[in-house]
Amino acid sequence: MNETTAVNATSTTDLKSLGGKYLTFALGTEEYGLGILKVQEIIGMMTVTRVPRIPDFVRGVINLRGRVIPVVDLRLKFNLEAQEDTERTCIIVVQVMRAENRVTMGLIVDEVSEVLYIEAGQIEPPPSFGSSIRTDFILGMGKVGNKVVMLLDVDKVLSTDEVNAIGQVV
């Protein structure tokens, strides 16, 4: 459970350019994908220090080889019900663009599945549910075999406002 390359990639909403490698992971029954270039590494669950007075979906901070980084519970972020950590619970360390800066963060997911190559042709635009459900952080829906992978735009999942908010909400 370790180490993949970490470079920042530009994300565009152009479906054609979406083909590529994705790290897929599970949250409950749903399957999600993260552009491989956004992922710095995957680490096992470790003790998270709770930080007071920040939004609930931020579980706290961890010590990543001497650096202190915040970790976000994606379940809470996506309004799924909270769940006890299991042996398969992982932290995916990603690089998020915040304004001009690159911020390192951890995402807590139920389980990491695999790295998939998804062709541009297999990707469909995100569905529209009207204004009731936000889908702007979904780049597209990848169809792999008989399952559907929601490809996340991690910069938007933790949108600039929210990343800022993590620091400012009292």
């Binding site: 930080v51 007071p52 915040p70 963060m105 990343v163 620091g167």
Partner: peptide, 9 residues
Amino acid sequence: LGEALQGTQ
């Protein structure tokens, strides 16, 4: 605490 959490009161 990293950029994101800097300034937590």
